[in-house]
Amino acid sequence: MRLTLADKVLIGGLIVVAIIGIGWHVTLNSRFRGQTAEIYKDGRLIDSLVLRSNYRQVVRVGTETDYDIIESDNGRVRVVEADCPDQLCVRMGWINSAPAEIVCMPNRVVVKVVSKERSDIDEIAR
């Protein structure tokens, strides 16, 4: 069992690239505090929640059987309950800053935190 030089370069390179990517993601996250959370289903914006301290809001999206219950509280947002089999969206927990997002694959729901900068650009574009 021996690794070749190319193996080691590949493994090392991937770890470095991954750490740079994660670092970039984390820095972006810490810079843009979220102001709203947008909820998309099948790629369409269907609802948005306000992220503000001491403010709580709960919405339920989806149908009778395929649903996600999404809660915003104190500037953070999470999926409280979903009827998907894997429950990944629930286990992802709270997110509070852009560009973090929660994905529920089985129901094709995306919860995306949007910061002020981002929504300003959107308003100009409109």
Binding site: I19, I22, Y40, D42, G43, R44, A100, V103, R108, K112
Partner: peptide, 15 residues
């Protein structure tokens, strides 16, 4: 999910 934001998971998956 029609969202390119999913690719933010890529560095974690690569790691």
């Amino acid at each position: 999910v029609v969202s390119s934001g999913v690719f933010w998971f890529l560095p974690y998956l690569v790691l």
